[in-house]
């Protein structure tokens, strides 16, 4: 498993197609890491939300038990990227510049939801704020803010590390 993936996916076309047909789920279907983690984007009451399906392998602290901080960070970062992809008029492939994650409460072993808010979109940089919650949206468990480079064309790549 050391070879990079082939380049035949046509990510830009797939994203455009998902937006045209209003199927946000297709955005996450094409990202291997999202499938591995059980991450998806869903329309709920007219709102685009990120969703992390609970699985035992997401646990970081079995004594509590609590979700791994990295798994929650992944949910927030992915939700921010997909929110940006969804709202941008043209297909831009955001490149994460930085992300700051704050852990407020224990992530319990149940499903987690997230909502990204585009706080500012400039010509080159977009600022996104994201919140994750479980049963009570008024009690977020994790929040993050992130900056993305949104240069259109081949200079930007989604999900770059």
């Amino acid at each position: 498993m050391t070879e990079p993936c082939d380049r035949s996916t046509g990510l830009v076309e797939l994203i455009a197609e998902a937006k045209r047909t209003n199927q946000p789920g297709r955005l996450t279907d094409i990202v291997p890491y999202a499938r591995f983690m059980g991450l998806s984007m869903r329309h709920v009451a007219g709102e685009l939300l990120g969703h992390l399906t609970y699985a035992d392998m997401l646990i970081g602290n079995p004594a509590l038990p609590a979700l791994h901080g990295g798994a929650l960070g992944a949910l927030l970062e992915s939700t921010a990227i997909f929110q940006l992809l969804w709202e941008a008029e043209t297909v831009v492939l955001p490149k994460t510049i930085d992300i700051t994650v704050e852990y407020l409460r224990t992530g319990r072993p149940i499903d987690t939801w997230a909502k990204g808010i585009l706080t500012r979109q400039g010509r080159r940089v977009a600022n996104v704020r994201v919140e994750a919650w479980q049963e009570d949206r008024q009690r977020p468990i994790t929040i993050a803010h992130a900056h993305f480079l949104i240069l259109p064309g081949p200079e930007g790549e989604v999900g770059d590390a």
Binding site: C5, L11, V31, P32, Y33, R35, G73, A74, L75, G159
Partner: peptide
């Protein structure tokens, strides 16, 4: 691992895996 790829076009790992 291919499971951890964020961009299927390039094979670059997802930021979430780096965060973890």
């Amino acid at each position: 691992s291919r499971d951890l790829v964020g961009n299927p076009d390039t094979g670059v790992l997802h930021g979430g895996a780096i965060t973890s």
